[in-house]
Nucleic acid binder design. Sequence first.
DNA 1: CTATATTAGTGTTGTTTCTACACTAACGAA
DNA 2: TTCGTTAGTGTAGAAACAACACTAATATAG
Lengths: 234, 234
Amino acid sequence: MTEQLLSYTYEHPRPALAVDCVVFGLDEGALQVLLIQRDAHPFAGRWALPGGFVRMDESLEQAARRELAEETGVRPAYLEQLYTFGELARDPRGRVVSVAYWALVKLSDHRTKAATDARDAAWFPAHGTPRLAFDHDRILDQARSRLQAKVRYQPIGFELLPPKFKLSQLQQLYEAVLEKPLDKRNFRKKILGMGVLEELDEVERDVAHRAARLYRFDRKRYQELVRRGWSFEI
Amino acid sequence: MTEQLLSYTYEHPRPALAVDCVVFGLDEGALQVLLIQRDAHPFAGRWALPGGFVRMDESLEQAARRELAEETGVRPAYLEQLYTFGELARDPRGRVVSVAYWALVKLSDHRTKAATDARDAAWFPAHGTPRLAFDHDRILDQARSRLQAKVRYQPIGFELLPPKFKLSQLQQLYEAVLEKPLDKRNFRKKILGMGVLEELDEVERDVAHRAARLYRFDRKRYQELVRRGWSFEI
DNA sequence: CTATATTAGTGTTGTTTCTACACTAACGAA
DNA sequence: TTCGTTAGTGTAGAAACAACACTAATATAG
């Protein structure tokens, strides 16, 4: 019986290989992160990053996407490798090396799904998380730094917003990620000056104040500009 | 017999875990990379990045340093994780996931050692490398991009120079890494204006032209400035 | 229907940073 | 003494950045 279960044998010992995902979303202008509550040993009851072991027939990114979908129902449009954590004692079960990924999702798309598909998945403020299992606090820290760095020179912020948004939402997003206030007029001047936003013939509705114009990120235009040597920078 | 050799058994199959290293040096102002020539299957005879399998009693970084020392004799002062490569078919021997590292060394320290300790290690121009084994061309590409990006906002260039250097060496370094010419006066103004270079009471010797003043990177001063919120940028 | 609360939207000015650019100084070798 | 070679220096115009305050539009409360 044990024979049948423990049936993969190698000449040299191998660490187990896992993936973990840090998924960011934006809720009412506040940066959120997706966690799951562990129900098994070790760290049972603790919140942790979604993740799991890599299978032999899938790449690392595929493993990250699969685990994320299985555990939370989330299928991010933007997913990128973060860092590989390989300290000897990071998992009490033994030697587990984990390749961490980070992702951005439009919360509007995923709020309901995550609530239904996965019993124990929930969004937390990216700062106000409880103490996480394993070395996941460190992974989350690193993901936040990476997002903060990357959002400055890549137009990835749009992955967090609905397709149509107003400039104040975009500004709030940058303020949330960069953790500092921005000047409204300078921000608008800069972002509109880039020419990567498409101004729509549409304004927001049902608001108790002046309605804001809606915009859309013009990916085609962005790629064209990049091809000509331009680079996004906030 | 086989029983004794193939003696590590797991419930689930595990990919093998390796590390590979991209080591950069600077030779006469030209960026070089350290390669080893493989003598075993697969890719016997091809040049490859130094690397090997991770042991159970060492962290990933330790594995990278160990393999690098064993295969090339090089012990870099600066070493950082690059990316983890986990495509299914990247190694013909089977599923091997490789955590790549990149490093900077002062070539003056390592030129002789590498030549003696390791028969089959050699420096190549970072661009004019032969076709490498495995997916190592891709890894090298990525390391070059990372170096190029990082050298702009971290004072890591100094890791490539001897402790005392002249400004024209520093400029050459940046030109080699960034692959574009820089204006001498603007470069000097900028780098000296930072206040992280210590001007020494020493000039170069035995040159058939006006001798250049020597400088040293002032790490203490740099760290002090960082503590005050300043950031290096070229 | 008027007033109020709330968010949208808009330009200018002074400061700093960036870029382009050319000559003199010092030294050894011929 | 001359020549070849690299070191070392300043300015001016352009561009980017930072600071800053009022009017416009809409729903709601009184």
